[in-house]
Design a protein around this nucleic acid. Structure first.
Ligand SMILES: [Mn+2]
Ligand SMILES: [Mn+2]
Ligand SMILES: [Zn+2]
Ligand SMILES: [Zn+2]
Lengths: 157, 157
DNA sequence: TTTTCATTTCGGAATCATTCCAGTTTAGTA
DNA sequence: TACTAAACTGGAATGATTCCGAAATGAAAA
């Protein structure tokens, strides 16, 4: 899975005139290291604070907003759940476990071409979002446990 | 496009022990008539009030919650936008226009089988959500107009 | 280095969709 | 018609996100 690097992200921010602050560095670090978890603002804050003495939730939201505007990450919204960050910009489906809340990436084979849809429906596709909800491998074996979707389920992934 | 009827919905509610109240009738009516717009709670309230003298927003939310729990409709969440109702339960992609906010249904051909994904990823798919964001036919011709996505864009659809 | 200042950060208040609640009304049954 | 569990209501509570004025600070210029 191609992963964006810390340096790429920071470089792009610098290019575009953003100042490189300890807060932004910390947040970018979390995104790079924990991106696969599709972290939310509060997890990012928590993790960022382990590296930088001073970060606020406002700043996390602000920074995520900037990164999102710059097209460097995406924002995922969920029912009853805080928003999460999508760092993997390749087209893929997020598999969202209804039991533990873990979100894993599934890369689709080249079919279901956006172009086809544009042509048929007169709709220009600029952005896609596909999610399958269900039960992940862990939650399939242990039938009915762990209701609330805790963040940070790190065992594997 | 197969559309659920007023009678089906009311019948199912009755079956399952729900009382048939003027409020529920009004809300169901709106869902049947305006379902293709993927209406949100406030639009539903507005429309329902044209038929029933007395309905409250609380009741709209409560009723939508019940219908959703009963699996008769689905709840769609969006960035910066109130939730919308999905009345079309067939598997399809919602085409969400970034300019006018209109959401139209696109039915996919039988490919991208959930079963395949389950097998490959060890994930049991119980529910799917797919959306393409972009620009609808109207907004494609008139390049850069109409920013905020107003609800009720009835011209066609 | 020091100066400078636009940008960034911060905490707290504001927002706003949604949920909760306690009191009142009512659908459906007998 | 009377009864009662369910449903409805308006207002208050919630909680994630956004907004804001004031204080702090990168980084370019001197
Ligand atoms: Mn993903
Ligand atoms: Mn739809
Ligand atoms: Zn799981
Ligand atoms: Zn449009």
């Amino acid at each position: 899975m191609k992963m964006i690097t810390r340096e790429e992200l920071i470089g792009k921010l610098k290019e575009r005139g953003f100042k490189i602050t300890p807060q932004r560095l910390a947040i970018v670090n979390v995104l790079v290291k924990r991106g696969h978890l599709h972290p939310g603002a509060n997890l990012i804050l928590e993790e960022a604070r382990k590296k930088t003495e001073r970060v606020s939730l406002s700043t996390v939201y602000a920074t995520l907003g900037e990164l999102s505007q710059q097209g460097l990450i995406k924002n995922l919204e969920f029912d009853q759940l805080e928003n999460r960050c999508e760092v993997n910009l390749e087209e893929h489906i997020n598999l969202v476990c209804k039991l533990c809340g873990k979100i894993t990436d599934y890369h689709i084979p080249p079919s279901l071409e956006p172009k086809d849809i544009a042509r048929e429906a007169g709709f220009i596709v600029t952005d896609a979002r596909m999610e399958y909800y269900g039960y992940c491998r862990n939650c399939t074996t242990l039938p009915k446990r762990a209701h609330a979707g805790r963040q940070i389920q790190d065992e594997n992934a």
